[in-house]
Design a binder for these strands. Structure first.
Length: 773
DNA sequence: CAGTGAGCGAGCTTCCGCTTGACTT
């Protein structure tokens, strides 16, 4: 058949390359790694040099068989996985899994998907770099050992089904520590003084200026304003300074995630999903990259586009180099495949993300913006202080014509304005002078994207793992992403206008948070555990240090299993030691004593999460337990809150001869009636809800159910055809079944429904539970 | 846009990095 089989990692890449290579080449994809350690066991032979037991991944068996067949028929197999540690390992695993022969296998690499780059790669093949493979093996084994020894320890000491790892545990640590910083931050205030001047002969011109000094206390601000009564104001200096602004580098995964978050409000996961789409439809280059490099082709495409749209003076071809720790640069930066396409067809999400990528790429190849910054100093006849006004004028817009990078901190109070022309020595007329109380701002909580930025700075995680890591720490409930309302804060404003000082108090809303990451009680507790016993693993430099060793291995200067051995000895000893000698780590805290029973009341993390416990664990009488509400935290829970938790379930009286009770369950507060459950509305308070309101809730839900119901059958009350979120479905004995396409849900007979239920094709899909062997 | 509603007992959970599907009841 085909003489040559080329294997790359991504199917979209395969398609493009096949176009470049012609009919003698068939190009296939490995879809990433084809071999990995078994998920259900450690799969590292500790006794024998930490030899990893790789196997073909379950979901790759079919693919490997197909590739094997193609490889057999080909005269030459070209392994073209990425040129980085993981890519080299993929080639090695393919070599093994496909049973390739050395004389019939070549390893090639390229960093950009262009015809010349591919041709060059084919002319310059090499062998598989086994040192680099060893480095990957060290990385893989280290992560497995850390993850699979630490996690079970957490199950025993803290709570089942938790996890820890080199990357996720640092991510959690960052969020926990940031929260502490936010809580510990001491807010101080000072009076910021601003004045508005008018200029003779320029009736519409306003000169806004700020005083060079801020006053710590109100009395000082007051004194200053008093001193200004009747004072004169003269321009004492006008200074002009030229400035330049340069465009930001083209997008990497991390910077794309940040900008899409800042400018479009996309979550990290959403950005990657949309980008994947753009990539698969050939509109952008690969979206998981740490490189800011653009191919020569891209540079010239950008140059043409800029020349055509804006003129030659806007062109400045730039080569960017990465400064990111641990970058492996196997790909190009993220860019449009065609710079001429300034917009695309697609969903609005896709269009907006593409627009961002297009502009960023174009701007990166454009001239600097030239600005002039003007600083005007205004003397006060009665004071040693001066007012300063700053303004900016754009002399040449350059790259600003298309794009300006966003900013994470929203603290910039006002943007610099255009200033009216004034001369040194000119006398100004003052309008209002304001002294406003301003407060210092504490550190900002992380968003998903700013956490990615931080992780990248620390060299922790890779472009392919940023989004999954963020989803893992939320899935484990170490962290929640949510909005939180702010609080109202009063501030003082003093005003001097027409020689009269007035004072008033105003209010502002502060501390409102949108889509920020907050640690949960579990996250805080697990972090505390790891800090106490495994500080070295969640050290911010741990990854950077092991990366140095991986580089040594890649350079052939160290044996990988020797490195792992040196790490594993002390690590494993600490695991065993902690397992044997430490008590349960529940974060238990004594809240006080129950005034009724006189028993101790504790708050702690139990098998199912944060809970309160009434009575001592080792007392004869079994203690009582109750879980915390969703919006309660162990840190802020009071004795009263805790006592209230024990007041459930509370009976509310009878309705239709059946008892009603209010209780708090896994999904929040609910009313139970006639063995049915009715969730309370968010506005209902379970502590004070009465029978009347409970009946309202019951009736409301009944009505809703009625509306959702498409069909019911008297002969078989367990079976119903309902209208759900994903459309009509059949529910039978607490299980739901999909309705085959083409069937009209309203006209199904009972027999037809029973047939649907009996057909395993329509059965509810369950998570893989079967176990082999 | 639905439904879900703990608490010994039995057995399970877990890592990080590469890649895309298949598409819920």
């Amino acid at each position: 058949m085909s003489k040559n089989l080329v294997i790359v990692e991504s199917p979209a890449k395969a398609k493009t390359i096949e176009g470049f290579l012609g009919k003698d080449y068939i190009v296939k994809s490995s879809y990433g790694h084809v071999m990995d350690l078994n998920k259900t066991q450690l799969s590292v032979d500790i006794e024998h040099g930490f030899e990893p037991q790789y196997e073909v991944s379950a979901d790759k068996k079919k693919l490997v068989a197909e590739l094997k067949k193609l490889a057999k028929e080909a005269e030459m197999v070209w392994l073209a996985s990425d040129e980085d540690r993981e890519g080299e390992a993929i080639s090695w695993h393919l070599f093994k899994a496909l049973g390739l022969k050395e004389d019939k296998t070549k390893r090639i690499v390229f960093h950009e998907i262009t015809k010349t780059a591919i041709a060059h790669a084919i002319e310059n093949p090499r062998g598989i770099d086994l040192n680099l493979v060893s480095a990957q093996q060290a990385r893989r084994v280290l992560d497995r050992l850390v993850g699979y020894e630490l996690s079970p320890l957490l199950w025993r000491k803290v709570k089942p089904a938790l996890s820890a790892g080199r990357v996720q545990s640092v991510a959690v640590r960052l969020i926990v520590e940031r929260e502490e910083e936010v809580k510990d931050f001491k807010v101080t205030s000072a009076y910021r003084v601003t004045a508005v001047f008018s200029v003779d002969g320029q009736p519409n011109a306003k000169l806004k200026a700020e005083l060079s000094e801020r006053f710590a206390i109100e009395a000082d601000a007051q004194n200053f304003l008093t001193s200004c009564i009747g004072a004169g104001y003269t321009v004492s200096a006008v200074e002009k300074k030229p400035m330049k602004k340069s465009p930001a580098a083209p997008f990497t995964t991390s910077t794309l995630q940040q900008e899409a978050s800042r400018k479009l409000g996309y979550s990290v996961g959403n950005t990657m999903r949309v980008a994947q789409h753009l990539y698969e439809s050939g509109k952008i280059t690969y979206m998981r990259t740490d490189s800011v490099n653009l191919s020569n082709l891209a540079l010239s495409l950008a140059k043409d586009e800029i020349t055509n749209s804006f003129g030659k003076e806007y062109v400045k071809t730039r080569k960017y180099t990465t400064k990111t720790k641990g970058a492996q640069e196997a790909h190009e930066a993220i860019r449009p495949t065609s710079m001429a396409a300034s917009s695309i067809s697609g969903t609005s999400e896709e269009k907006r993300l593409y627009d961002l990528i297009w502009k960023r790429t174009l701007a990166s190849q454009m001239a600097d913006a030239e600005l002039e910054k003007t600083t005007i100093t205004v003397d006060i006849s009665s004071s040693k202080y001066t007012f300063i006004a700053t303004g900016e004028v754009i002399l040449f817009d350059g790259f600003l014509k298309v794009y300006l990078e966003g900013n994470d901190d929203d603290s910039s109070e006002e943007s610099a304005d255009l200033l009216p022309p004034v001369k040194n020595g000119q006398v100004l007329k003052v309008g209002e002078i304001l002294a406003q109380q301003r407060f210092t701002r504490g550190p900002a909580r992380y968003t998903e994207a700013s956490l990615v930025k931080k992780l990248e700075e620390l060299g922790i995680g890779r472009p392919s793992t940023y989004a999954p890591t963020i989803s893992t720490i939320q899935k484990r409930e170490y962290v929640v992403k949510e909005d939180r309302p702010g609080t109202s804060r009063e501030y003082k404003v003093l005003s001097l206008l027409s020689d009269k000082i007035t004072s008033k108090t105003e209010a502002e809303n502060v501390g409102f948070e949108k889509s920020k990451l907050f640690p949960t009680d579990i996250g805080i507790l697990v972090n505390k555990f790891l800090c106490q016993y495994f500080e070295s693993i969640i050290d911010f430099n741990f990854t950077a240090n092991v990366e140095k060793e991986f580089d040594e291995i890649a350079d052939g200067n160290q044996a990988w299993n020797k490195m792992i051995g040196e790490f594993y000895g002390p690590f494993h000893k600490k695991i065993e030691d902690t397992n044997e000698n430490s008590a349960k780590f529940s974060g238990e805290k004594l809240l006080g004593v129950d005034p009724v029973s006189g028993k101790n009341l504790f708050v702690k993390v139990g098998r199912y999460g944060p809970m309160v416990q009434l009575g001592d664990t080792d007392s004869e009488e079994k203690p009582k337990f109750a879980g915390l509400h969703k919006n309660q935290t162990m840190d802020t829970l009071t004795l009263e809150d805790a006592l209230e938790l024990f007041s459930f379930p509370r009976t509310l009286g009878e309705y239709e001869t059946k008892e009603m009770a209010v209780a708090i369950g896994r999904f929040g507060p609910y009313v139970k009636h006639d063995s049915k459950f009715y969730s309370l509305a968010k506005t209902d308070d379970p502590a004070s809800i009465d029978a009347e309101r409970a009946i309202e809730i019951i009736l409301a839900k009944r009505e809703k159910e009625e509306q959702a119901s498409i069909q019911e059958f008297q002969q078989e009350p367990d079976l119903k055809v309902l209208n759900g979120r994903y459309g009509p479905y059949i529910t039978f004995k607490k299980k739901n079944y999909k309705i085959p396409k083409g069937a009209d849900p309203a006209k199904l007979s009972l027999e037809e429904c029973m047939a649907i239920v009996a057909n395993p094709d329509n059965a509810p899909k369950k998570a893989f539970k079967g176990k082999r062997k």
